[in-house]
Design a protein around this nucleic acid. Sequence first.
DNA 1: TATGCGTGGAA
DNA 2: TTTCCAAGCAT
Length: 370
Amino acid sequence: MTRKKQPTIYTLPDEFQAFDFAQDLLYWYDAQKRDLPWRINRDPYRVWVSEIMLQQTRVETVKPYYQNFMQKFPTVEALAAAPEEEVLKAWEGLGYYSRVRNLQAAAREVTVSYGGVVPDTPEEISKLKGVGPYTAGAILSIAYEVPVPAVDGNVMRVFSRLLLMDDDIAKPATRIKMEQLVKQTIPIGRAGDFNQAIMELGALVCLPKNPQCLTCPVFDYCLARREGVQDTLPVKGKAKPPRPVQLLTAVVKRGNQYLIQKRPEQGLLAGLWEFPMVEDAGTKDDEEQLLRLLEKEYGLQVDLGDYLMNVQHTFSHLHWNVDVYVMEHISGEPLKENAVFVTSEEMSQYAFPVLHNKIIAEITAKEEKW
DNA sequence: TATGCGTGGAA
DNA sequence: TTTCCAAGCAT
C-alpha cells in the first residue's frame, strides 16, 4: 500500500505577533506608499498588466512601458483584438517576451470564456497563461480583496529576516512554506494592501544589501534584527554562470533593403525579428560559413562580406559573442519562411531584441556613407 | 526539482 | 569590471 506524503504544515513562531505586525506595517504603508501608475485604481485588467510587467523587472523600468501599453490597449478586449506584432512592439526592450504573448493569449481567453471579466477565483485565474502562484495571488488580493498570499522575491526576503528563516529562497519548496506563513498574517479586509505593503517594505527598507533597519516600521517584530543577523539573510543558492556562445550574423543588403527573419514562436527571444545568424563552428573562415548558410538555408547568392562589428550580449543563462558582416545581395529570393527584405524605415515596425537594435543603430549611423 | 527565459541599474 | 539582482512562469 503506497501513500502520498502528507504536506508539512508550517506555523508562525509563538513570539511573532502577527496581528500587531500587520497593523504597524499597514500604518506605514498608508503613509509612505509610492505613487505608481498602476495604483490609480484597482481595475483587475490594470492590475493584471502591471503584475505581468513587473515580473523580474524594476519599477522604474516598467513605468513608461505601462503607460504606453495601457494607452494602446486600455481594456481586455482591446488587447485581445490587437495584432500580435503591435503588442510585441509595445513590449520591445522589456525582456522575457513570452510574458506578453501569454498575456495576449490569456486576454483572448478572458474575452471569450469570461465575457471580458477577469475571473476572481484561484482555480479560474490560475488557468490563464502566464499567471502563476504569485500573479494569481496579487490580482486576487489587490483587485478583488481575496485573502490569499502573493509571495515574490521581496516577500521571501522580508519574511526570511522577520521570522529568522534560513531556508534557501532559490528553492521552489521555500515559496510554498512562505505562502503558508504569509497567509496566517493577512489581516481581514486588507489583503491587497497587506501584500503590497510587504513588497513595498522590501523595495524601500528591507533591501537585499544594507537593510535600513533604523527606519523600519516593523523593527520591533524582526527576529533576525533581534539576533543581529539581518545581513546574512535571506539564504540564496547561486546560479550557474552563463554559457558562452559564438555567433556569426549576416546583414544582407539589397539596394536600400535588409534581410530579416522572425524567430520561432517558442524559446529564446520568441517571435522577435533578427538578422540571419549561425553558430560559429570556430574552425572555418567566418565569411565562408555565412555564404554557405545564405545559399543553403535562404537560397541567396551574396557578395563576399565586410566585417562590420562585434556585439556581445549576456542573458541570464547565455553569453552571446556575435561577429557581424555586411554582404551585398546578388540574386535569389528568400526561400525561408518568415524571411523578408525591408527598408530601415520599415524595420521600425518590427520588434527586435536589444542585441539587434545595437546592430541596427550601427547600420543607420553608417548608411550615409554607403 | 532544475533549467530556460531579457534587460538594465546599482554597488 | 563583475556580480547581483527586480512585483516569476513554464516545463
